[in-house]
């Protein structure tokens, strides 16, 4: 714990600054023009395009655009969408709920399934079951998420007709919890698959590591029941590295959500992001980017804090 909270915060600010500059440059320098959507309208003249450009604030030098944007960012004005002129924050929060529901469900599923697989494998190292789990997690990590999406849709929606193939609820229907859950089911599972594999490998290693420790031998020498050893001694210790993984999962889940939402036409942040990239809707794209970067860095700080609370060794050394 040589890192003080302040230096952590400073590092976070530097990281966010780099992210904002890189993201801004990447977006603005990439070919493509936000005005493309207007340029195609019949009767659009150069003068009119110039006016639009001016209103979007795109007619000043790039560094100035950046500074204007950063200033707004700091004071809570994240700009307005080039597409529908809604405030960026309003749009983001409008889509956030759907993504959180999807990613939240998926990460719960993944943590539960992955951790169970990992614990199972670690306690039976070298067994047939353990080998199967290991192979299964490699397989899950090796196949693109969207393929699972397509296959599940083709099986459960198209062939069997059990579950809907997309959207958050039946189009035109009234909202009902059952209908919502049915729509949530497939995308949540697809999004969870990759993380499940990561959790399973990670948990297995963490538990196997703890199982080899001297204090587990001590616990056995004390004549404790296997159950007590497993929960109180092994899992308590294995939990610590798993906290770290939970924090690191955030950007991965978001990337996964991007693709899953596309496959299942789920109206969340991920799809919004892809759309805004396609339309060169800079304010929205940058808004989402910064939003997720802030969440990711907060996630890692939160992880460290949790770790410090959960691990007596750290609690002690801070005294």
């Amino acid at each position: 714990m040589t890192d003080t909270f302040v230096s952590r915060l400073a590092r976070m600010v530097v990281t966010l600054a780099i992210v904002s500059v890189t993201g801004f440059l990447l977006l603005h320098l990439a070919p493509g023009d936000p005005l493309a959507q207007f340029a195609l309208s019949p009767g659009m003249t150069e003068t009119q395009l110039g006016m639009i450009r001016h209103q979007m604030g795109l007619d000043v030098p790039l560094p100035v655009q950046y500074l204007v944007w950063v200033k707004g960012l700091l004071f809570g004005d994240w700009g307005r969408s080039f597409r529908d002129h809604q405030p960026v924050l309003t749009i983001i929060f409008g889509h956030l709920g759907a993504t959180l529901e999807l990613a939240g469900t998926a990460s719960l599923l993944a943590t539960w399934a992955g951790a169970s697989m990992g614990v199972y494998g670690a306690f039976r190292q070298g067994s047939r079951g353990d080998t199967m789990m290991t192979i299964l997690s490699v397989v899950l990590l090796s196949i693109p998420t969207f393929w699972f999406g397509l296959v599940f849709i083709s099986l459960f929606s198209v062939r069997l007709g059990w579950l809907p193939s997309g959207n958050i609820h039946t189009v035109g229907g009234a909202f009902s919890p059952g209908d919502y859950l049915r729509h949530l089911f497939l995308p949540a599972i697809v999004l969870a698959l990759g993380s499940t594999a990561i959790w399973s490998r990670y948990t297995r290693n963490a538990v196997a590591e703890v199982l080899g420790q001297d204090y587990i031998r001590t616990a056995r020498a004390k004549g404790l029941s296997p159950r007590r050893i497993r929960y109180r001694h092994v899992l308590r210790n294995a939990l610590l590295p798993m906290i770290t993984l939970a924090g690191l999962q955030f950007p991965t889940l978001l990337s996964g959500a991007l693709v899953t939402e596309t496959v299942f036409t789920w109206p969340g942040i991920g799809r919004l992001f892809l759309d805004s990239l396609e339309y060169r809707d800079y304010p929205v794209a940058m808004g989402i980017l910064m939003f997720s970067a802030v969440l990711a860095t907060f996630g890692s700080i939160l992880t460290d804090a949790l770790y410090a609370v959960a691990d007596p060794r750290l609690r002690v050394s801070r005294q």
Binding site: D214, L224, N237, D311, P312
Partner: peptide, 19 residues
């Protein structure tokens, strides 16, 4: 184990559960 026969190990630094 631990009741009629107990054991003390070599390395006290690693033999106790840290958490």
């Amino acid at each position: 184990r631990g009741r009629d026969i107990s054991m003390v190990f070599q390395d006290p630094m690693t033999s106790l559960n840290p958490v």
